[in-house]
Amino acid sequence: MSSASSFENSGLSSASAGVCTLSLEQAIEYLRGSDLSLRVYAAWWLGRFRIDDIRAVAALSEALADEDDRTVAGGYPLRRSAARALGKLGNQSAVSALMSSLGCSDFHVREAAAQSLGILGAQESIAKLTELLKNEVAGTEASLEEPELIQPYDAVLEALGALGASAAVPVIETFLQHPVERVQYAAARALYQLSETASAARQYGDFLIQALSHQKLQLRRAALADLGAIGYLPAAGAIASALAENSLKLIALKGLLEKQLEQSEGDFLCEESVKVMQMMDALL
């Protein structure tokens, strides 16, 4: 998803990634302080370095209810940042605060909360996520950017797929016809993950392969990320020859390779894995 475009521009470079400029105590102090820029920075920092400490989780969960940091358009930058960070920390105690954030008026807060709930494997959020998909949550506002979406559908669909929400399949299917392609891809990705058999899943994987030849680079990038996430092996050749940056193709192929390695369990390298590695080598 959005990781494709911000790839490598994520603030800190890995050359300096080892340098932790804050301490946990300092970050929490900043987060609860009055300097808005430091509060956002501290939230980002806790997520970036995955500081999984119960005090950090508590302070970030509090920040999800912040009222001080508002944009002119009514957005909540600190809440967005905190919601993203909580997904990275991987701590289950953040789940209920994140579920409340699904009802936030700010589109991007809901988006980040949905992503984080998917990462955290929060089964209890399935019902609320499905309501969001049906646009049944009151008080939520549409995105301000183009294309205007009422809900962060792609993030919600992605989370539902990751959470194995098979009861949501009928609703998810309706999004295959959504006017925004990125949303269609997210639906296909989720349906692939929710399919009961490999043969039923295929049509969704193949749909995403088609998307690799979309005219728009941004959409080809999105399809690459989706195919990597589901590890759809028949896509290997199409990924290797897709018109996109090698770095993104490599990440997608890694997804395929790792899925294959997990399925073949252990030290045996099957022919398919070797083929994927050959393609990866050619892109290095």
């Binding site: 890694k254 390779l257 790792e258 894995s273 590695m277 050959q278 990866m280």
Partner: peptide
């Protein structure tokens, strides 16, 4: 840490 990197040395190119 990464499964893909673990696997790569097992395949001599």
């Amino acid at each position: 840490d990464s499964l893909a990197v673990q696997a790569r040395p097992c395949w001599p190119s």
